[in-house]
Simulated assay, not measured.
Amino acid sequence: MRVVDDGVDLRGMESNDSGRLRLEHDGDHWCLVGEGADQLGLVDEYLSHLGDRNYSPKTLRAYGFDLVVFGRWLLGEGLDLEDVTTPVLLRFLAACRAAWLPGRPGPNVVDLRGRRLDGYAATTINRRLVAVSGLFAFRAMRDPTLPNPVPKGREAHRVTPGGRTGLLAHLVRRPRPRSALRLREPTRLPRPLNVEEATRLLGSLRTWRDRAIAGLMLYCGLRSCEVLALDIADVDIGRGWLRVWGKGARERAVPLDGDVAQAIQAYLFLERPESDSTRVFLVSKGPHRGQPLTAAGLRTIFRYHRGLTGVTAGHPHALRHSFGTALAEAGVDLAVMQTLLGHAHVDTTARYIHLAPKRVKEEFDAARARIRRQV
């Protein structure tokens, strides 16, 4: 049985109190233990419900931590779930915005836009609201007579120009109403690596395993979790294709770059330790040799090479962003980009269109030339 505690409350203070409300995983499902867990039994049922609906383990863990924070706040306020109303949720969100994180600059330090640098991001607070909203929606599903304290706002924009309509309209995800309590989130564009940074980072990799992993993200656009989930049967080196399992257990076929295929082949023949595991990438050294490489192990590898090369932006996902940016700059069709990157919605893929400075500069120069000819 594994006990997990995020160690941070709404005031940012750490606590080693073993009786404190915390999240626990017994190998099958997540549940709350500690002080006040009996009052929050609905949370355990909700997390089990999400598990039955095939939600990913990472989503369950994130929602569990968010509900632990919500439960601790309710206990501190002397409230039960039955006492939660819309004003109570507003107070909870205000407490989240006022919270500070240890190890961050003080509240008097702000960024160029005037935002504090010691608190939670708007995305984190909105995710907590999503977890709480799902909890009360689950309660309303079980007992329709109980009110849902989370107000609904306008429907989220999911229909894009050129989307499926008519007989194919059922293939489009229906718009979902978003809560009016959501915070505005800043729109951030993916930050790719430039050619010099990517060359330095890949040049520091010494093993065939690490080169193959980086190549799959940089030249094939795979997510780090997709790379770690690759089985040997998913790699068809002869035909040059990969079978990739993405988010939501969605399967897609991705072309395999020739150089990356050679790196994978060299790793399988020269470096991969003997193991009963079907995963492609395994731990090479230490007591866990032969076991599947974990996300923590992958982060350790990239953290070491970031320090070695000085490429501070050399995170695994930055390589995937570089792949998407290269596709946009090459003028690849948006639908093809969506298929290669495994995005569920074309809106996510469209972010990379704004990251094609070469194409923007060419269009700008052409427009300026036309204007000058007309003047």
Score class of each variant (00 low, 15 high):
2 R>T: 15
4 V>G: 09
7 G>N: 06
7 G>P: 05
17 D>A: 13
22 R>G: 06
24 E>P: 08
25 H>S: 10
28 D>P: 02
30 W>T: 00
34 G>Y: 02
40 L>M: 11
49 H>V: 05
49 H>Q: 12
52 D>P: 04
53 R>M: 04
53 R>W: 01
55 Y>A: 03
61 R>Y: 08
64 G>A: 03
67 L>M: 06
71 G>W: 03
75 L>H: 11
81 L>Q: 03
82 E>S: 15
83 D>Y: 04
85 T>P: 08
97 R>Q: 14
109 V>Y: 00
110 V>G: 00
110 V>F: 04
110 V>N: 02
112 L>P: 00
112 L>H: 06
124 T>K: 06
125 I>T: 05
126 N>C: 04
130 V>L: 12
140 A>D: 03
141 M>V: 01
143 D>L: 08
145 T>A: 13
147 P>C: 03
147 P>F: 00
154 R>W: 06
154 R>S: 14
156 A>C: 09
158 R>K: 12
172 V>M: 05
174 R>H: 06
176 R>V: 13
177 P>I: 01
178 R>S: 11
183 L>N: 00
186 P>D: 09
197 E>L: 06
206 R>K: 15
225 C>M: 14
232 I>P: 03
233 A>Q: 11
237 I>S: 05
239 R>H: 14
242 L>W: 04
253 A>G: 09
257 D>K: 08
268 L>S: 07
278 T>C: 09
280 V>A: 10
289 R>H: 08
290 G>C: 01
298 L>R: 08
298 L>Y: 01
313 A>V: 06
314 G>P: 10
321 H>G: 09
326 A>T: 11
330 A>L: 11
338 Q>L: 07
341 L>V: 05
342 G>T: 02
342 G>H: 01
347 D>K: 11
351 R>M: 15
358 K>W: 11
362 E>N: 13
368 R>N: 08
370 R>I: 07
371 I>Q: 11
373 R>K: 13
374 Q>L: 14
